[in-house]
Computed example of a mutant assay.
Amino acid sequence: MTNKKRTAREVADALRTRVLNKEKQPGETLATVAEIAETYDVARETARAAANMLAAEGLLRSVHRRGFVVQNTVPRRRIRRGQVVTRNPHTGYVFPATHDPGEKWVAHGTPRRSLEAAPEIVATTFGVEPGSSVLRRRRVTSPAGEPAFQLVDTWLSAQAVTDAPQVAEPSTGPGGYLDRLEEAGHGPMSWREVTRVRMPSADEAKLLEISTAMPVFEITMTGYSGRDDSPLEVTIKVIPGDRVEMVADLVRGDSAGWPVSAVVAP
């Protein structure tokens, strides 16, 4: 009688224990697929599936020619996505935040601006063909001293760039690109926000230093002209799923007032 082979879930449990016991430090290779297969006497497909389970949890990340590397995990942040837009007299508009407004955040690498092929959501919003060249402003940010927290892409329509050319410059001046758009005749602007969960692209995973098996939150904010209601900008924030949890305070409606009136069935 042959011994029963371990399942991918069982191998994943064993690998998780090794990670949580800090067998390797963040940035170090825990094991390759071949080493996992040999250690736990399983097929390579089973070994890869087990490691990918931990990648989806944010504990490991597959790195070409190195194997599965231990991730630098951070506590989840609670996000309260309100609906109120405020204004700071020094920096401009303040939108519902993904962090404490008083917390210091830093950029990872140099923020970039370039003409890029528009993804479907941007092309549809601006009424252009998918793949059309659209101005994109890109930055990766996080709290000081922490791994990359979010990738932020701001896409600006051709009309926005024509009416307010400074939005395409490295520095958009006091108040940022939104002030330039409103000064160009598009104020007061309005915004709509949509949140969804999806899998990251290879490029997004690389910039955020996560596995492509890690789901991400995508928060898309579209800004509309106050002059003709045309869409001027689409800002897309991509946040690894292991970084956040959404929180909302529920409010009682009139029918749920207290004390609850007793209702006797006939």
Rank of each mutant, 00 (worst) to 15 (best):
M221P: 00
T46I: 14
G187N: 10
V42W: 02
M1A: 14
E245H: 14
G253V: 11
H108V: 11
V128H: 04
T2Q: 10
V134K: 03
A37L: 02
T2D: 08
S171L: 01
F68I: 06
S255Q: 09
P215L: 07
I239E: 02
P266W: 04
R6I: 00
S171H: 07
L135I: 09
G257R: 15
V247G: 00
E245N: 11
A55D: 12
P174R: 09
P130I: 08
R138M: 12
P165I: 05
R76Y: 02
V33T: 15
G102L: 10
R87H: 12
K22C: 03
N72W: 10
A8S: 15
A265S: 14
G241P: 08
E209A: 13
A47E: 07
F68K: 03
P188Q: 11
L60Q: 08
V70Q: 05
T46S: 13
V260W: 01
R61P: 01
L15F: 07
G58F: 05
K4H: 09
R44Q: 14
L59M: 14
H64C: 00
F126W: 05
G67M: 08
E23W: 08
T73L: 13
D179M: 02
K5V: 02
F217H: 13
Q150W: 00
A168W: 05
S255H: 11
V94D: 07
W258E: 13
